[in-house]
Simulated assay, not measured.
Amino acid sequence: MTTVTVWNEYRHEREHDVVADLYPDGIHATIADALEDRGFETNTATLDEPEHGLTEEVLDDTDVLTWWGHAAHDEVDDEVVDRVQQHVLDGMGLIVLHSAHLSKPFRRLMGTSGSLNWREAAETERVWTIEPGHPIADGIGDYFEVPDAEMYGERFDVPQPDDLVFTSWFEGGEVFRSGCCWTRGNGRVFYFRPGHETYPVYHQEEVRRVLGNACEWAADAADAPGPSVSNRSEPIEDIDSDDERSVH
C-alpha cells in the first residue's frame, strides 16, 4: 500500500476562527481523510513537532509527501529541507499545495523564487484540464470551478513544467498554470494551486480527486531504479590506461 505523509504548518487553524471552522482538526487532517478514502495509508506531520515531524525514519516510510505551508516558510529547518530534497531525488513523490509555492523544499527543487501575483477576493476560479490524458486529470472532465478562491496570476516563477495538467482562469481575468509536473532526480513533483485556508477548497470533490490522482502518479516513480555511478575499472574499448597523473 502506498504511504502518504501529509505535512501542514497547522498555524492558521489554531489562530483564526474562520479557518478552524472549516478545518477543525487542521488542513492536514482533511487532506489525510480524503486520501484514506482513496485507499492510501496516511500519516500527518506538522511544523511544531520535533524535526517538523519529518524524521529520517518517517521519510524512509513515505512514498509521497504532500506539503501545505503559508505563513512560516522561514521556520522550516534547513536540515529538514535537505532531508526532503534527498528523498525526492531518491524517488519520493512531492505534492506541493497552494501557498507552498514559496516553501523551502519547493524552491530548492525548482531552483527559482516561486513568486507570483495574487489577490484575495473570494472570486470564482475555473480550472481547465489541459492534458485530459494525464493520470492526474483522470475523472475531472474539461474543467471544474472553485466558487471562492484566492487569485494567483502569472508570471509564476518556476521552470517550464514537464507537463502542464491544469490552467486556471479567474473572475478578475487572470490566468495561472495551476497544475504543473516535474521530475527531479528519481522523484516526481506536482504543484496544485487551489487550497486557500479561508475557503472550503479541500472539501470539494474535484480537488480531493486531483489529490488522490496526484499521489498515485507520484508514487509510481518510487520503485524505479535510482542512478548508479562507479569508477569503471575495465574499459569497454581497448585503451592505454597506464596514466600516472590521477590524483584520486
Rank of each mutant, 00 (worst) to 15 (best):
D82H: 10
N186Y: 03
S115H: 13
T55P: 07
V146H: 03
V229Y: 13
E244A: 09
D90G: 12
C181F: 05
T112L: 05
A34Y: 05
A71L: 11
C215F: 08
P161D: 06
Y23P: 10
D33E: 15
T2Y: 00
T55F: 07
E150F: 05
E123Q: 13
V158I: 06
L102G: 14
I31C: 07
D162G: 00
R83A: 10
P235M: 06
D90H: 06
N213E: 08
P194T: 01
G173V: 02
I140L: 12
R177I: 01
N117I: 01
G173Y: 01
D61G: 11
F176A: 13
R14M: 03
E131Y: 03
Y152T: 02
S115A: 13
V4E: 02
G114K: 12
L94E: 09
T30A: 14
M151P: 03
G114H: 12
Y143F: 13
H87D: 02
D242A: 13
E131R: 01
E36D: 14
L35N: 09
S233V: 11
K104H: 09
W68G: 08
R184V: 06
I27Y: 04
W7L: 00
M1D: 05
Q85W: 06
H70W: 15
F190D: 04
F192Q: 04
S115F: 08
P225F: 14
T183G: 11
V58N: 11
F156W: 15
S228Q: 12
W128P: 02
V18L: 10
N213P: 08
R232I: 14
A71G: 15
T3C: 02
T3Q: 06
L102C: 03
G139D: 04
E15T: 14
M1V: 04
W7N: 01
D148E: 15
D163R: 14
C180H: 03
V201M: 04
S246H: 05
T46C: 13
R83N: 12
G139S: 08
W217D: 08
V96C: 09
A34M: 03
H101A: 15
A29Q: 13
T62M: 12
E56H: 11
S241C: 00
E49Y: 10
D243I: 12
V207C: 07
A122T: 02
E206R: 02
D220Q: 11
A100E: 00
V18R: 05
